[in-house]
Design a protein around this nucleic acid. Structure first.
Length: 422
RNA sequence: GGAGAGGUGACAGAGUGGUCGAAUGUGCAUGAUUGGAAAUCAUGUGUACUCGCAAGGGUACCGAGGGUUCGAAUCCCUCCCUCUCCGCCA
């Protein structure tokens, strides 16, 4: 959510942001609504003020005296007026809030102009995409793949996109999670093991409700949502809290399974391990001082990059253009790993600075040492990393002539062997 | 899941219809005192929104939401959470 004062005082800044994100939001009705909101708020408060002062007078009168009864009669009229104005204001307020939630975050000055993914800027490339493996093929075509990653049985037990990982498949998942968590810990991120079901308030605070309700699985008896990412429970950890400025920055990481309905996905995007309804991911999250957030974004991104480097996987970093930037992000990098068999880039991490956008919605603040006043923190998050696509990149890029898959050296201590067998 | 007891400011804890944003204690901050500290004394100490150039004013908030009433922290309803006992269970 944006600062309502920003809209009020500098609507052109908001207009420019909407244009840069290629969104279609008309500010004029929202500005008019805001004016109405303030006028009605004023009405209600004026009436209530009168009601309150009358309350003091009545307390001084003897109950049941003629003066008292007269006053009751008088105040009955005011009371019904208050109720009417309050009801009006409540309606306006609901509309006002809904309207405010349609305003996107302001892109950072360093975000490139552009409408679609084609205008994203490649700002770093690491490793070669040429002939990483002469034997590379899409991971689902690797002989023996079906034994380690059992999609048919997953479909029987649950549905499409819920594979069983078997034997070395399961072992590799576990090794990657372990590797990611250990590396994050070394980089200063405190490990957290969060709930993977959240309540509506938590889903709302990070913007998954109401905008993206369709992306999440929901429980029937209790109104809980299965998390689409650990960002949801992690960001909510400090919801409605005020942190000490000295405690910033706070670094946290969490491994969780993630659940996404992915309605509407099809074709090559969903082949093999490319896009699943349930997948494993280590998420990195930071709560930082506003003055430091862009430095913190860079260091988070560099940490995520270091993981791919240690796994010896070719990747590049995209700086998202305005049109491809999410609604809530001020700046975002995508890390894409090279998938040698599919000959395409696969997103394995998305590192974003939300500035105060999430913090305002979730009311996460810190007490400014200088002023003593609470101020909104900036939140930054990114994957570090998503397991299945990294796993498939390892399968494809490290496939040997003899059909074995070489385990990257950094992973060997966690996997226990140098080759994966089918 | 059943029965009972509770949820008040940073914490403890009063308040059962009116002048209560809320006593008191602790904590914290500032000042006085001291060679310095402790102790003591004084003053101050929530958040949000809104009006105002400002000084300052107004409104809301006593787990959440609704209701009764001229008026609700206080009465009623629903929900959430915590604790105790019973049941069940990794």
């Amino acid at each position: 959510m944006l600062d309502p004062k920003l809209l009020r005082e500098t609507p052109d800044v908001v207009r420019a942001a909407i244009a840069r994100k290629y969104l279609d939001v008309d500010l004029d009705p929202i500005l008019a609504l805001d004016a109405l909101w303030r006028a009605q708020l004023n009405d209600v408060e004026t009436l209530r003020s009168r009601q309150k002062s009358a309350n003091g007078e009545m307390a001084a009168l003897r109950k049941g005296s003629p003066e008292f009864l007269a006053k009751v009669q008088e105040m009955k009229g005011l009371s019904s007026q208050v109720k009417e104005k309050e009801a009006n204001f409540a309606q306006t307020d609901a509309k006002w809030r809904a309207a405010m939630l349609t305003l996107p975050n302001i892109p950072h000055a360093s975000v490139p102009e552009g409408r679609t993914a084609a205008q994203n800027v490649v700002c770093a490339t690491h490793g070669s995409t040429d002939a990483v493996s002469p034997h590379a093929r899409p991971h689902w075509e690797i002989p023996g793949f079906d034994r380690l990653f059992d999609f048919p049985r997953g479909a029987k037990v649950t549905g499409a996109g819920f594979p069983f990982y078997v034997g070395d498949g399961a072992r590799l998942v576990r090794a990657l999670i372990q590797f990611f968590i250990e590396e994050a810990g070394r980089a200063g991120y405190l490990e957290v093991h969060p709930p993977i079901l959240v309540n509506p308030a938590s889903a709302t605070a990070v913007g998954q409700l109401p905008d993206k309700e369709g992306m999440m699985y929901q429980t029937v008896e209790d109104q809980f949502y299965l998390i689409p990412t650990a960002e949801t429970p992690l960001t909510n950890f400090f919801r409605e809290e005020i942190l000490e400025e000295a405690a910033l920055p706070v670094y946290r990481c969490a491994y969780t399974p993630c659940f996404r309905r992915e309605a509407g996905s099809y074709g090559k995007d969903v082949r093999g391990l490319n896009r699943l309804h349930q997948f494993d991911k280590v998420e990195l999250l930071k709560w930082v001082h506003p003055s430091r957030s862009y430095d913190e974004l860079e260091s988070l991104r560099l940490h995520a990059e270091s993981l791919l480097q240690k796994l010896e996987l070719p990747y590049h970093v995209l700086l998202m253009c305005g049109g491809d930037l999410g609604f809530a992000q001020a700046k975002k990098y995508d890390l894409e790993v090279w998938s040698a068999g599919q000959k395409r880039w696969l997103e394995v991490s998305s590192c974003s600075n939300f500035e105060a956008f999430q913090a305002r919605r979730a009311q996460i603040r810190f007490r400014c040492k200088e002023t003593g006043r609470p101020e909104l923190v900036h939140t930054i998050n990114g994957s570090g990393l998503a397991v299945p696509r990294v796993l498939s990149a390892i399968l494809e890029n490290n496939l040997q002539a003899d059909g074995r898959v070489r385990i990257p050296a950094a992973l060997v201590p966690h996997f226990g062997r140098e080759f994966l067998s089918f």
